[in-house]
C-alpha cells in the first residue's frame, strides 16, 4: 500500500476503533525508517520488520496487507494495492467491535480488566487494576517502599538496600511493568525518578 493511501485510510476511519499500522523492511534502500516517515508524511506507527517477525506470519510478498477484525480473526490477507477491497473489509469489520471485549457487562472504557471476565470488578488494593488481572498485590506486598516485594509469612517486610537497588533498576530501565513501579513514587510527585531514590535512601538510613 502506498504511503498516501495509508494516511487516507487513517483519515477515513479516524473516529472509529480502527488502528492503521505499517511495517517496513530492507531499510536504507534508500530511506531509513525516519526518512520514510518524513519524506512521505506518514503519521501512523511504523514498525521495524527487518527480521521478518511480521512477514514470517502474514506473508512475504511485498506489499502485503492484512486486516484483523475486532474478534482477532483474519478477514483479509493479500499482496498488492487493492485499496477499495481493504476499505470495504474494514467497514464490514466495524460491527465486530463490541465495546465489551470480555463480555462481563462492563464497557471497556471503565473495565478494570478489559480482557478478563470480572463482572464484580473487585480491586482489593485499590490501584485501579482489578484483582482478576492484577499480578501486583499493593495491599500486602508492594506497599510503603517495599519495592523489592519481599515479605515474610506474616506479611512483614523491611525497607532495605534491595528495595533501593530495585528502584534504581526500575528508574534506569523505565520499567513501568515492574510491580515496584506502582509504589516507586516515594515523594508522591507523580514521577518515579532519582529524587525518589534519594528519598528512599533517607528512609533506609533514618527509619521513622
Amino acid at each position: 500500500m502506498e504511503a498516501p493511501q495509508l494516511e487516507a485510510v487513517k483519515q477515513q476511519f479516524i473516529d472509529e476503533e480502527v488502528i492503521i499500522i505499517t511495517a517496513g523492511k530492507s531499510w536504507g534502500q534508500p530511506y531509513n525508517c525516519e526518512q520514510w516517515a518524513t519524506n512521505f508524511g506518514l503519521t501512523i506507527p511504523i514498525l521495524d520488520d527487518e527480521i521478518d517477525s511480521l512477514s514470517s506470519i502474514f506473508g512475504n510478498s511485498i506489499p502485503h496487507n492484512v486486516v484483523i477484525d475486532g474478534n482477532g480473526q483474519i478477514v483479509y490477507t493479500s499482496n498488492g494495492h487493492n485499496l477499495a477491497g481493504i476499505i470495504n473489509v474494514i467497514e464490514n469489520s466495524l460491527n465486530t467491535i463490541s465495546g465489551d471485549y470480555d463480555d462481563d457487562g462492563i464497557l471497556d472504557d471503565v473495565d478494570n480488566c478489559i480482557d478478563v471476565n470480572n463482572p464484580l470488578q473487585n480491586d482489593n488494593d485499590l490501584d485501579g487494576t482489578g484483582d482478576a488481572c492484577d499480578s501486583c498485590d499493593n495491599l500486602l506486598v508492594y506497599v510503603d517502599g517495599n519495592i523489592y516485594g519481599e515479605v515474610d509469612y506474616q506479611s512483614n517486610y523491611d525497607i532495605d538496600i534491595f528495595d533501593l537497588i530495585t528502584l534504581m533498576d526500575i528508574i534506569a530501565n523505565d520499567d513501568t511493568n515492574n510491580c515496584g513501579y506502582e509504589i516507586g513514587d516515594i515523594t508522591n510527585d507523580g514521577n518515579v525518578n532519582i529524587i525518589d531514590a534519594i528519598a528512599l535512601i533517607q528512609r533506609i538510613l533514618y527509619p521513622e
Binding site: I19, A23, N65
Partner: peptide, 21 residues
Amino acid sequence: IWSYDQHGINKVIFLSVFATW
C-alpha cells in the same frame, strides 16, 4: 514495541508491510 495484545485487542487492525526498495 507494538503488540497486538497491548494495542490491538477489540479493534480493527489494518497492517501494511512494505519494503523500501
